[in-house]
Write a protein that binds this DNA or RNA. Structure first.
Lengths: 127, 127
DNA sequence: GCTTTAATAGTAATAGTTACTGATAGCAAA
DNA sequence: TTTGCTATCAGTAACTATTACTATTAAAGC
């Protein structure tokens, strides 16, 4: 894998983002530094960085991939009102499949949904 | 919501499937009973049934929605070799966000990834 | 510097899903 | 039962996120 300035930038953008950005958001942020970078390059590098374990790809209920700088296994909470995604701890820690599971566990993704504290306080939680 | 034969069929197909089918698989199975049913109808009804809580929409790391007849909160395991999705128990039961979370929890999705027992036994687990 | 070739910009293509349109049929009231 | 309203349907076009393609560019080793 060659060390190109584009790949380095995509990586840096993800590492500096704590809001779990999608490819479009990474593209917008990268364009501010390198205006000629192309969307395809962003997609390719995000995928490649995720495959090599440099960043993490996460999947929320909206229909696009998001990227996460945090590599260790952790849970996410996605607010259905404001759409914000945040890291949250899990009560008692994150556990694997219970007894009876004979496969090989390689990844764990936990996603909570609901309304975040901020939206409740502002009274935006809706019906 | 009107009780149409198409909607009833889509619902029945999901209820009779234990393999967490995607829209295309539901379409194929529905076509065997009602050959003129359209893809759009399948999509619309799956979405509507999920929104009204009759079935559950789940999201695996491959890029399409799957549907689940089981309404109660449960975890899934997706084998990266054969692609099969199965229900699995979680060690110690399924927990919510830990203390410090002040929002409203409405949904929990847990997805394990790896290689299933069957693929390990058959020696298909790859590198 | 020169060569090799992975990676790039730009664009076309794909896949899953949703929206649109005229026709159909479920349901309620007459 | 018949009529009217309109949600839903089949069929198709459109849309969005993502991937593939192609000529060009630029890392990295010699």
């Amino acid at each position: 894998m060659r060390n190109t300035s584009q790949r380095e930038l995509v990586y840096k953008v993800v590492m500096q983002s704590s809001d779990h950005p999608g490819a479009d958001a990474v593209y917008e942020r990268a364009r501010k530094i390198m205006p000629k970078i192309s969307m395809g390059t962003v997609y390719r590098n995000l995928k490649q960085l995720a495959e090599t374990g440099k960043i993490r790809e996460i999947r929320i209920s909206d229909n696009y991939n998001r990227y996460d700088k945090t590599l260790q296994v952790h849970a996410h909470f996605c607010c259905r009102v404001c759409g914000k995604v945040t890291d949250v701890p899990v009560e008692g820690g994150i556990k694997g499949p219970g007894s009876g599971f004979g496969g090989k566990l390689e990844s764990t993704d936990i996603l909570f949904g609901g309304v975040c504290e901020e939206c409740i306080v502002c009274g935006k939680e809706g019906a």
